[in-house]
């Protein structure tokens, strides 16, 4: 057996890479959505200054490459602020914020998509701004947002592959290692690609199921 041959242990490596990718994706999605929800709250209550800051940050994150953001966080922040940064922390931070920037826009347009008449009606009944958000806007906005949100997350799953560049041992990094050792690019990258593809399809089908449920609970069948 040549050193360059595939070994059963390669499967273990691939599984580990897959685990890191899935784990980091799940973590950044949860954190990202949480930040996006906070951003949306700030926007909804029209908090002065903070609101403009958030919009600016979100625009900057949406209009620059994730790779550059990763470099800025991983190489830039430690050099400028003299702090320690591991690849994993840098990756989690960057992808979370990136997800948040895009999800924020989706949430906001979800809220905007609810008819203004409904909000006016709720106001007339004397409901507070919080009650309007919780009982009028949120259920409908959730149903509107879930479609674009799933699309975003499928895209963010692909984006996680970039963290391999700053040295996180995710699926792409493992692919890189196997590729350089075995010199079988077609086999290695096809397998890695298929794994990503399967994950994306899984995510999309779960998303479709959630969307169905949310749409059912919205009484007014919009659009």
């Amino acid at each position: 057996m040549r050193y360059a041959d595939f070994t059963p242990y390669d499967l273990v490596l691939l599984a580990q890479g897959l685990g890191v990718t899935v784990g980091l994706f799940t973590l950044t999605t949860l954190v990202g959505l949480l930040i996006a929800a906070l951003f949306t709250l700030v926007d909804y209550y029209r908090v002065p200054v903070l609101r403009q800051v958030i919009v600016t940050i979100s625009e900057a994150l949406k209009n620059s490459p994730v790779l550059v953001q990763l470099f800025l966080v991983f190489f830039g922040l430690p050099a400028f602020f003299h702090i320690n940064m591991t690849p994993f922390v840098a990756a989690s931070l960057t992808i979370s914020l990136n997800t948040a920037a895009f999800a924020f826009v989706i949430f906001r347009s979800g809220i905007d998509a609810v008819e203004a008449d409904q909000v006016a009606a709720a106001k007339v009944y004397g409901h507070s701004r919080w009650q309007i958000l919780r009982f009028v806007l949120l259920p409908q906005a959730a149903a509107f947002s879930i479609g674009p949100l799933v699309g975003l997350l499928v895209n963010q799953l692909q984006v996680t592959s970039l963290i391999s560049v700053i040295g996180v041992f995710d699926l792409t990094k493992i692919g890189n290692i196997l590729n350089l050792r075995t010199l079988e690019p077609f086999i290695v990258w096809t397998v890695v690609g298929l794994l990503y593809y399967a994950l994306a399809k899984l995510l999309a089908s779960v998303g479709a199921r959630i969307e169905k449920r949310l749409r059912r609970s919205v009484v007014w069948e919009g659009i």
Partner: peptide, 17 residues
């Protein structure tokens, strides 16, 4: 296929393949 796989994987596929 191309929308559901990462660009970097596609790039390596072509570059090394």
């Amino acid at each position: 296929v191309f929308r559901n796989t990462p660009f970097i994987v596609q790039l390596f596929f072509f570059f090394y393949g």
